[in-house]
Nucleic acid binder design. Structure first.
Length: 432
RNA sequence: GUGGGCGUAGCUCAGCUUGGUUAGAGCACCUGGUUGUGGCCCAGGAGGCCGUGGGUUCAAGUCCCAUCGCUCACCCCA
C-alpha cells in the first residue's frame, strides 16, 4: 500500500461468516492429520472415495430425513439454471451411499470399506467448534450386519481421535434398536412422558409428538431430571436380536481395552441410524464438544433405492480435532524449513546465484533464493528466520569470478569457500 | 432466529470509569552499531479515518444512539 495508492479507502473483502482461511502456518498441522488418517485407514483396509461438493437436494432430504434440523434449516440450497434444486453437502454419508449405488460397488464385492475427507456446509450461527464450512473425515463400511464390524469402526474412530486430539477423551455408546423394535419403544416413551407435557417448553412438547427420541438431546436440567426419572431406557426395550448385537459390540470393545460408557440418552440427530450409536467428546472444547459421531444405518441404502444393505460409519470434525489438540497442548507439526538460502552480494552475481540455485534443487535440496537485492546482513537474517540449515554466499571479493562461493553452516556458523561444482555434494553429505 | 461480551499499530492488548496538548506498550518489521556475515544485546525508524455513521459538547478513542463485524452461548451438531 504505497502513499500514491489512488483509492486508499476502497472496500476490502473479508471472509464470509463461518468460513476460515487456512494460512501457511496452519497447513503443517492439517497435512499431519491428513497423513495420519490415510495411514490408519489404509492399514485397516479402507479405500478413499471422493464425491462432489454438491448434490441434488432430494438426496439429503430423503437420506438424512426431512424432519431433521440439518435438512429443515441448515442446508445451503440453490437452483441451477435449469431450475434443479441443488445443495452443498451438509454431511457425507448420503453422498457416499449414492456413489456406492451409482457405480454398483455392491456388486463388485459384498463388502465395501470406504473413507473420505473433505469440506461440508451447514448454515448455522457459528460458535466455538462450529463453522459454516468445516471439514470432516470419516468412513463407511457397507455390507456387514455383524457386531465385529461395529467394533472395527468404533476402534478406528477411537484410535484416530486419540492420536490426533490428545488429552482425555470420552466415548459413549448406545443402541437405538432396529426400526421394528424402536416403534414400540417410541409409543412407550410417549405414553410415559405425556402426563408431563404441560410442564415442558414449547420445543420439547412439539418434539414429544414428532420425534420423541430427540428429547434426550436437551440441556435443560429440569427436562433432564424428568427424563432420568420417567423415561424408559431404550436399550432395555429393543428386540432380543438388537440386544444381543449391542452386548456383542460392548464385549468387542472390552477385548480391545477401549473405554466407553453406555449412555441410554445418546441419540443422534440424523434419521438413518439404527442399533449402535456412538460419540467421542473432548472436555477441552466448548459447548460443541463432539469430535466424532457415528453408528449403524442398516436402512439407508434401501432408503436411497438400493438393495437392503447393512452399514456402519462415523464422521469426525477436523477443525474440532485440531482445536482439541491445541487446547490440550498436543504439539503441532513443525513447519518445513529450507535446506539452503542462496545469497548474493552484488547484482552482477545474481545470474550465477540463480544457476547454482537450480543445480542445488536438481540435487534434491530445498533452496530459497534472495530476490529482494537486500544487504547481506538482511539476507542472512532472512536465512536465519526461515530456519535454513546452510547459506550459500555468492560474493565477488572472495572469488565468485574464479568459480567459488562461500558455504556457511547456519547452526555452527562455520563457513568454507568451495568451487561451485562441489557445493551440491558438500551440502548433501553434511545434511546426511 | 434469540441473548451476553468485544471492536485502538501486522499480532496481543493498555488508555474509556471521572471527555482536555503531538494516542501508548510488548512482540513482529526496517535501518544502524560490523566499508559484503544471521541469532543475543544496544540505538534509532516506520507503521493508527481509535470498526462505520450520526448526536451531545468549546472539546469525543473516552459520553449517547444507530449500524456493521467478530466472538461465546441457546437451538442443533462434527
Amino acid at each position: 500500500m504505497s502513499p500514491a495508492d489512488p483509492n486508499p479507502r476502497a472496500e476490502r473483502f473479508s471472509r464470509l461468516k463461518g468460513t476460515h482461511d487456512i494460512l501457511p502456518a496452519q497447513v503443517p498441522a492439517w497435512r499431519h492429520l491428513e497423513k495420519t488418517v490415510a495411514d490408519v485407514m489404509s492399514r485397516s483396509g479402507y479405500h478413499e472415495i471422493r464425491t462432489p461438493i454438491f448434490e441434488r437436494t432430494e438426496l439429503f432430504s430423503r437420506g438424512v430425513g426431512a424432519q431433521t434440523d440439518l435438512v429443515g434449516k441448515e442446508m445451503y440450497t440453490f437452483e441451477d439454471q435449469g431450475g434443479k434444486s441443488l445443495t452443498l453437502r451438509p454431511e457425507l454419508t448420503a453422498s457416499i451411499v449414492r456413489a456406492y449405488l451409482q457405480h454398483n460397488l455392491d456388486r463388485d464385492s459384498p463388502l465395501s470399506r470406504l473413507y473420505y475427507l473433505g469440506p461440508l456446509f451447514r448454515q448455522e450461527r457459528p460458535q466455538k467448534g462450529r463453522q459454516r464450512q468445516f471439514h470432516q473425515f470419516g468412513l463407511e463400511a457397507l455390507g456387514s450386519p455383524h457386531p465385529e464390524q461395529d467394533v472395527e469402526v468404533i476402534s478406528i474412530a477411537w484410535e484416530l481421535c486419540r492420536a490426533l486430539a490428545g488429552g482425555e477423551l470420552t466415548m459413549r455408546i448406545n443402541t437405538i434398536g432396529s426400526p421394528g423394535s424402536r416403534a414400540g419403544y417410541l409409543d412407550l416413551l410417549r405414553q410415559s412422558l405425556e402426563p408431563f407435557k404441560a410442564g415442558m417448553g414449547e420445543n420439547d412438547a412439539r418434539r414429544l409428538a414428532t420425534n420423541p427420541l430427540r428429547l434426550f438431546d436437551t440441556k435443560d436440567p429440569q427436562m433432564r431430571a424428568l427424563l432420568q426419572e420417567h423415561a424408559p431406557k431404550i436399550s432395555e426395550h429393543v428386540s432380543a436380536a438388537d440386544s444381543d448385537h449391542y452386548a456383542a459390540v460392548q464385549a468387542g470393545l472390552d477385548t480391545l481395552d477401549i473405554p466407553f460408557a453406555s449412555d441410554p440418552t445418546l441419540v443422534r440427530g440424523l434419521d438413518y441410524y439404527t442399533r449402535t450409536t456412538f460419540e467421542i467428546t473432548s472436555p477441552v472444547l466448548g459447548a460443541q464438544d463432539a469430535l466424532c459421531g457415528g453408528g449403524r444405518y442398516d436402512g439407508l441404502v434401501a432408503q436411497l433405492g438400493g438393495p437392503s444393505t447393512p452399514a456402519v460409519g462415523f464422521a469426525a470434525g477436523i477443525e474440532r480435532l485440531l482445536l482439541a489438540a491445541t487446547e490440550s497442548g498436543h504439539e503441532p507439526a513443525p513447519a518445513e524449513t529450507p535446506d539452503v538460502y542462496m545469497a548474493a552480494t552484488g547484482d552482477d552475481l545474481i545470474p550465477q546465484a540463480t544457476a547454482l540455485t537450480h543445480e542445488l534443487r536438481k540435487g534434491g535440496l530445498s533452496v530459497v533464493q534472495e530476490v529482494m537485492r537486500r544487504s547481506l546482513k538482511a539476507q542472512l537474517r532472512e536465512a536465519n528466520r526461515l530456519g535454513c540449515r546452510f547459506a550459500v554466499i555468492m560474493g565477488d571479493t572472495a572469488g565468485a569470478n574464479k568459480g567459488m562461493a562461500v558455504v556457511k553452516n547456519m547452526t555452527s556458523g562455520e563457513q568454507t569457500e568451495l568451487p561451485l561444482d562441489e557445493i551440491v555434494a558438500e551440502i548433501r553429505s553434511s545434511l546426511g
